[in-house]
């Protein structure tokens, strides 16, 4: 997913930056997702893996946050001031419309 998806923007400010999410679902499953923001996340490429991993999972907060946490552990992600729950919050705001 490259260009932003023109759905409602879910906007959440973590201590580390602004997270803007756009999500498209089908039958309660995340089909497409795009996130833009001024946060920091190391290693940077792991962010795109996280986005890929979110596609195809149920559009529920607990599933989203668990998946993000898994990627954080697998990829040894550090994101000062931004936590998996912050990404989940931004995504939920997009879903809740």
């Amino acid at each position: 997913m490259d260009a932003a998806i023109k759905t409602k923007q879910g906007l959440h400010k973590s201590k580390g930056g602004l997270i803007r999410s756009f999500v498209r679902t089908e039958n309660g499953i995340i089909k497409d997702i795009s996130i833009s923001g001024d946060f920091f996340l190391f290693p940077e490429d792991a962010f795109f893996k996280m986005i890929q991993e979110l596609k195809g999972i149920p559009a529920r907060r607990e599933d989203i946050e668990r998946k993000i946490q898994e990627v954080y552990i697998d990829e040894n992600i550090q994101s000062p001031g931004t936590f998996p729950a912050d990404f989940a919050e931004s995504i939920m705001k997009a879903l809740e419309g």
């Binding site: 260009a3 932003a4 923007q9 996130i35 833009s36 923001g37 001024d38 946060f39 940077e44 962010f47």
Partner: peptide, 10 residues
């Protein structure tokens, strides 16, 4: 732009 920023959004 920052690495995670999309031009058409920001």
């Amino acid at each position: 732009l920052g690495y995670f920023q999309k031009a058409d959004i920001e």
